[in-house]
């Protein structure tokens, strides 16, 4: 039951929490057990900065079944203000307005559901900055 692996990952997804190497400071999202930059196994949880900019992006028109209800939707490669790179879905955005370099911020949305009678899975997505 993948609902249970969704539960296990809830904190990472909800809070946009990754891991940081205590030795060299490298940050990862999703979290890693071991730092692939310096090899240290001393990692700690870290809430990642919520702002970043779009480095590259796509708009998915051909989604896996799980995401059919939401398509089309945009997914971007985002560089956070601390330099960490993550992949994230964009929301509240018009596709023709997405630009490389666009500033985005983390938000909390529904990712997918296990049908009408199943779990709703929530997590982090990104939207154009609201200031």
């Amino acid at each position: 039951m993948t609902e249970i692996s969704d539960w296990r990952k809830r904190i990472e997804r909800y809070r946009f929490q990754g891991s940081e190497c205590v030795k060299c400071g490298a940050r990862y999202y999703p979290s890693r057990i071991k730092c692939i930059k310096c090899g240290s196994e001393e990692m700690r949880d870290v809430e990642l900065p919520r702002r970043g900019r779009v480095v590259s992006y796509t708009v998915i028109y051909n989604p896996p079944k799980k995401f059919s209800k939401y398509a089309p939707y945009a997914v971007a490669l985002i560089e956070l203000v601390d330099g960490t790179r993550v992949l994230g879905q964009l929301t509240d955005v018009d596709f023709d307005k997405i630009r490389v370099g666009m500033e985005v911020e983390a938000t909390f949305r529904k990712l997918y559901e296990y049908g009408e009678d199943g779990h709703i899975v929530y997590g982090t997505k990104f939207r154009p900055v609201v200031s």
């Binding site: 999703p30 998915i60 051909n62 896996p64 992949l87 994230g88 879905q89 990712l111 982090t124």
Partner: peptide, 11 residues
Amino acid sequence: IMNSTGLTNAG
């Protein structure tokens, strides 16, 4: 990652 973003291989 794929399930957190809705990415596909094409994406």
